[in-house]
Write a protein that binds this DNA or RNA. Sequence first.
DNA 1: TCATCTATTCCGCATATCGGAAACTTTCTC
DNA 2: GAGAAAGTTTCCGATATGCGGAATAGATGA
Lengths: 273, 273
Amino acid sequence: MTVDDAGAKSSLQRGLAILRLLADGNETGARLTDIARALNLTPPTVHRILKTLVEEGMVEADKGSKRYRLGIDLFAMAARAGNPNNLRDICRPIMLRLSATLRDTIFLMVRSGFDAVCLDRSEGPFPIRSFTGDIGGRVTLGIGQGSLAILAFLPEEEREEVIRFNLPRMQGVGILDEVYLRTEIARVRDVGYASRSTGLLPGMSGVAVPVLDRQGHAVAALSVGTINERLNEERLPVVVDILRREAAGVCRQLNPFDPVLRRPAAILGSGAA
Amino acid sequence: MTVDDAGAKSSLQRGLAILRLLADGNETGARLTDIARALNLTPPTVHRILKTLVEEGMVEADKGSKRYRLGIDLFAMAARAGNPNNLRDICRPIMLRLSATLRDTIFLMVRSGFDAVCLDRSEGPFPIRSFTGDIGGRVTLGIGQGSLAILAFLPEEEREEVIRFNLPRMQGVGILDEVYLRTEIARVRDVGYASRSTGLLPGMSGVAVPVLDRQGHAVAALSVGTINERLNEERLPVVVDILRREAAGVCRQLNPFDPVLRRPAAILGSGAA
DNA sequence: TCATCTATTCCGCATATCGGAAACTTTCTC
DNA sequence: GAGAAAGTTTCCGATATGCGGAATAGATGA
C-alpha cells in the first residue's frame, strides 16, 4: 500500500497515513526513519507530525523515544466507531445467547468498502481459526461465509462493483473464477445463507445469514465459525434456523421507526426472546 | 470538553478534534454546523476537513450527506492499537479460561493517561454493570477495582501525579478524600489485589490483580466483575488466587526476552497452563 | 410560496507547513 | 573503547497550504 507518490498533500492526510502505517506492524512499532522512508517524507516532517500525534494522544512513543506505535487513546476513541446504528449493542446480547446455545464462536460482520470487517465476536468453547481473526479484522468481501452473505445481498449495482474490484484480489484464496463466485452468490441468495462454500481453512466450517434492511439489502451478517464435524447435514439446518431467527430480530431492532411518527425509539431494553 | 479556545492550530489537530467529537455521540452522528459550532470553526473549514476525512475512510457521511459519524475503517485501524505488546492476544485465552472457570465477567484494563481503558472483556453468564462498560470504555484511574489495582502499582512518581490530577475528578463518585484514597492504595499494595473498595455500583462487586512488569510496576490489570453474592468471604480468596496465577502467567509472556540475547521470542504458541 | 437554516464553492490573504542544513544522540563496528 | 554511521531533533526562510468571508445552492419548514 503506497500512499506516497502522487497525492499526499495535507498534513492531515500525512498524519492519517502515518497512523495507517503504524496500524500495520503495530506489534513491533515503527521508527521515525522507517516511516519517513515508507511514506516518502523527510525526517523532520515525520518528526513534527509524530510530535503532534503524540501530543494528541493518538500515538505513543516507546521509552527512549525509539519506536512509535498507536496509542490506547486512539483505540478508545475508535471503539465507538464500531457501533453503527447501535448495531453492535443490539447484537451483543444476541451473540452471547447464540454462542451459549450453539457452543460455537459467533461473528458479527459488516461491510467496509471492498472488505468485510469483524465488528464483534463471541467465543464458544471450541478453538477456531477464521479469516477475520479478531475484532477489527478485515477480509476481502466474498471470502468467508459472513463476508459472502453480505456480498450476496448487496444492492445489485454495488455488488457488481465489488465483484469487479475483488476478483483479482481473490486469486489464490480458493475463489477459482468469476463464474464460480457468481454461482456461489446466486446460491446464497437462493437459500438465504452462506455455508462453508469452500474448505479454505482446513477443518473449519461456517454458516452465515445476512441481516437485511427494509429493502432486503445486507447491513451485516451473523456467522458461526466452527469445526467441520460440528456442522454436518444434521446440525446445519438447525443452526441456520436459529441464526435466521436472531437475524430477523436484529433487523426489527435496527429499524425501530414508527412508520408514521418517524421516531427512533430507544428499545434496547426490550429483550427479544 | 472544549478543544476550541487556545491551541487548535494545524489541520491535523483540527481533524483529530473532529474525530474525537464524532466519537462522542457517535450513535446519533453530528452535522457539519454542529461540529463547526462545537469546535469554534467556520463551516467551510469543517467541510473541507470532513471531506478529507471521508476520502481517507475515517469518517462516513450518512445518506443525503446530512450526518457524519466515524467510519468502520477507523475502527478496523484502531483495533490494532488495542494490542500493546501483544497484551491483548496474550490475555485472550487466559480471559476465556477465567470467565469459563469462574463463571463471571473478566476485564482487561490498561492505563491511558489519567484513565484506565478496557482493552478486552470476556463475558460470564451473569449480567453485570461496570464503570468501564464495553471494550474501549474509560474510567478515571482509581475508580473501580481494575483501575485501582493499576494506580496502586504505578511507579511512585507517576502515581502521585495521577492522584493529584484525579482527586478533583473523583468527587461524587465515592472517593471521599485524599486520605481515604491513599489508604485504599496502601491496602491494595499490601495485599496485592483490589477488592470492592466501595459499593459504588449497587449490588456489584469486583476483584482485580495487577499485571506487573520486571520492575514491579503495573502494565495492566485483570479483574472480575460480578454480583455481591458471588464474592463473599469464602469465594474471594479463591478468585484472587486464580487471578494471581494467571496474572503471573501473563507477566511471564510479556517479558519474553532472553536476558542474554535480548531477542524478543515469538512464544504465543506455548500455551501456559 | 417564501423564509430560514444548512451545506458547498470560490478566492485572496496569511499562516502554518515543508524540508535543507546542521547539532545532537544513539547504535554499530572494529 | 574510540571512531564511524545512522537516527533523531532543532532551526529557519520560502512558499505552498489551509483559512474564512462572502456568495451560491440546497434543504427544511411555515
